[in-house]
């Protein structure tokens, strides 16, 4: 029975190694796509005429369809940071075929933190930029902040943290299995 378990585990590990290669390729393609996307947005935003002189909401919204350049740069850094961590994770899985290691847990938690920042920081920038505009109450600022949070990215952050804890449980099982052998 032990040999049967070992065989099945080895087969599962081999499948993870092969799938890790595909996951690595997909992540590289997404990274390349994101590089072009952010470059295009930054160039477009830099070339926009300055219609911000009148200090009105319409002037602000027509001037910055993708946000300000510092906002874009922060989002760009956080996205590339997350992609780099995922590349390291999938690279490790492709090499070893063993998903439940401390390194993988740390990588996943770090990716979750970056995604959490990516969900919240642009909302902070958005509110800070319009905080000096006339006619907007404090309640509206709070409402704008919660509306501006990227909910999809927040969900990804929650899933990454959940997976990190799942991997941590997997480490305990892996240690038990290795000690039994």
């Amino acid at each position: 029975m032990e040999q049967n378990h070992d065989t099945v585990k080895q087969q599962a590990s081999e499948r993870i190694r092969k799938s890790g290669r595909i996951a690595l390729v997909i992540t590289v393609l997404i990274l390349i796509g994101q590089i072009f996307s952010y470059a295009a947005k930054i160039i477009y935003t830099a070339k926009q005429p300055d219609t911000l002189q009148d200090m009105t909401m319409i002037g602000y919204l027509t001037f910055r369809p993708y946000g300000t350049i510092p906002d874009l740069i922060v989002r760009c850094i956080l996205t590339f940071g997350t992609m780099a961590l995922l590349l390291l994770l999938f690279g490790s899985l492709r090499k070893t075929g063993l998903p439940f290691t401390e390194r993988n847990v740390r990588l996943m938690k770090a990716a979750g933190v970056l995604q959490g920042l990516q969900a919240v920081l642009p909302a902070v920038f958005h509110v800070v930029q319009i905080i000096f505009y006339d006619g907007i109450s404090v309640v509206s600022h709070f409402r704008d902040f919660f509306r501006s949070i990227n909910h999809v990215t927040f969900g990804v952050c929650a899933v990454l943290f959940f997976l990190a804890w799942t991997f941590r449980y997997g480490i305990v099982l892996q240690t038990e299995s290795d000690e039994t052998l």
């Binding site: 585990k9 998903p99 997997g170």
Partner: peptide, 13 residues
């Protein structure tokens, strides 16, 4: 696939 590997470890445990 990763969860399937974890299922193997859980079964063994």
């Amino acid at each position: 696939q990763i969860l399937h590997y974890g299922t193997m470890l859980q079964l063994e445990s």
